[in-house]
Design a protein around this nucleic acid. Structure first.
Length: 432
RNA sequence: GUCCGGAUGGUGUAGGGGCCGAGCAUAGAGCCCUGUCGAGGCUCUGACCCGGGUUCGAAUCCCGGUCCGGGCGCCA
């Protein structure tokens, strides 16, 4: 290791110790007789102080010439100093420039001058140097870690399923075609079919965190063409059981993030309210009723518009479920109610600002599933690989899928979903 | 896809027919400065998206294109 400490690992109590810090030259303040260099690493910023008259002229000269954002290693002793930012400063004996930064910089990581999201995404490697952007991804990591902990604790087994597939999963959404040797294939829109097949496979409880691809030409602040989904499937349970699991998971993730990401949340200026469980449940019928305030022409059997979702979100004001959707607007694998087949055992998890997840009790009976595929205008033959799993002992099961970026976006109150993914793929952007 | 708005130094912006030889901030170069913490002061460098048109005159108005932002749709 080239460094002995992160900047955050030093306090005024380390006075007198020799340390080696490594990072980027965040800022230089040259006051003439005294020179302050700010060294930034991913955990924070440390002040390097050089009193010019008392220091080696060569070191002073060298320090004055380093361009901002160059990668430097500083060896020196810690001095307790109430006037310094974190209560300590480093009196350097050696400063090495490992990689000199060109100037001007494509954006300003100190954040003094703003940059458009588009500019930031073009030079994401530099954007993530800013403590704010870095914090978003530190939180993202903890969202995914907490999810894995929670689901593992609940007996779920993590699986990975193919992203290259032969046929559409659900119909509905558009897929990206690609050439697979001499055949056409697609990028998968969801692990749905595979996780269900593993219920027949005896896994009982599975989850996957992975990319999903949608070829829709949507162009909004809450859609991506490549997103990350947390998907679960569980056997011998009902949709009510997996809704319970989902709300517990969301609350757990919020709780762990607020415990483990204190500094990041402070950087982002976010005060996390841990959602209270159980979440409110309203039926689709009730949702339509509320939505008619703003969408009087909304008919039963139609999907909710953006304005409708907003109106209902305002009304409820916290996380909630919309349950019992019309069978016709949900995927074919959703289980219709036996006594009322026009509605099904499906649900959406909503944040007041947008949809986060959707799921259902699944059809586990071969004949009904095949019939539903046909009714939705799809060809059962292309689902043979899937349907087969329902013919030799398929337990009743339920599950859901939740968008990681949307969870993070609503948690951190970010205005654009592109903030939540390092290298977003959208209608226009395929690089970097 | 559609509607609205926009494109000015590296970055973020002001200016909406002549006042623009384009203002400001920040960054960069240089000088001064011993406690900065958005350090400060002085000097300098650096820009009107592309193509047509209107006009004596276009950064500014019109047309086309490209790119970008927001809303809606589609969608999760």
């Amino acid at each position: 290791m080239m460094r002995t400490h992160y900047t955050s690992e030093i306090t005024s109590e380390d006075a007198g110790k020799e340390v080696v810090l490594a990072g980027w030259l965040h800022e230089v303040r040259d006051l003439g007789g005294i020179l302050f260099l700010l060294l930034r690493d991913r955990e924070g910023i440390a002040q390097i102080t050089i009193v010019t008259k008392k220091s080696d002229p060569e070191l002073v000269n060298k320090a004055r010439k380093i361009p901002r954002e160059s990668v430097i290693v500083v060896r020196g002793s810690v001095k307790a100093e109430p006037k310094a930012p974190n209560g300590y400063e480093i009196l350097p004996t050696h400063i090495d420039v490992l990689s000199k930064a060109e100037s001007p910089l494509p954006l300003d990581p100190t954040g003094k001058v703003g940059a458009d999201l588009d500019t930031r995404l073009d030079v994401r490697f530099m954007d993530t140097r800013s403590p704010r952007t870095f914090s978003i991804f530190a939180v993202r990591h903890h969202v995914m870690l907490a999810t894995r902990e929670f689901l593992t604790e609940k007996g779920f087994i993590e699986i990975t399923t193919p992203k290259i597939v032969a046929a559409a999963t659900e119909g509905g959404t558009a897929l990206f075609p690609l050439s697979y040797f001499d055949r056409e294939a697609f990028l998968n829109q969801s692990p749905q079919l595979f996780k269900q097949m593993m219920m027949a496979g005896g896994f009982d409880r599975v989850f996957e965190i992975g990319p999903i691809f949608r070829a829709e030409e949507h162009d909004t602040t809450r859609h991506l063409n490549e997103a990350t989904s947390i998907d679960i499937e569980q056997s011998f349970v009902t949709h009510h059981d997996v809704m319970g699991l989902l709300e517990e998971l969301v609350a757990y993730v919020y709780e762990k993030v607020s415990e483990r990401c204190e500094r990041n949340l402070r950087t982002l200026n976010i005060e996390l309210d841990i959602p209270k469980t159980p979440f409110v449940k309203i039926t689709y019928d009730e949702a339509i009723e509320i939505a008619r305030d703003v969408e009087p022409s909304l008919e039963w059997g139609e999907d909710l518009t953006t304005a409708a979702e907003k109106r209902i979100g305002e009304e409820i004001g916290e996380h909630y479920f919309i349950v019992d959707w019309p069978t016709s607007i949900k995927p074919y694998y959703s289980m219709p109610y036996g006594d009322k087949p026009e509605i099904c055992k499906s649900f959406d998890l909503m944040h007041p600002k947008m949809e986060l997840a959707s799921g259902a009790q699944r059809i586990h009976e071969y004949g009904l599933l095949k019939k539903r595929i046909e009714e939705q205008g799809l060809n059962p033959d292309s689902f043979d690989f899937y349907l087969q799993a329902f013919r030799y002992g398929m337990p009743p099961h339920a599950g859901w899928g939740m968008g990681v970026e949307r969870l993070l976006m609503t948690m951190l109150d970010l205005k654009n979903i592109r903030e939540c993914i390092l290298f977003p793929r959208d209608r226009r952007r395929v690089a970097p």
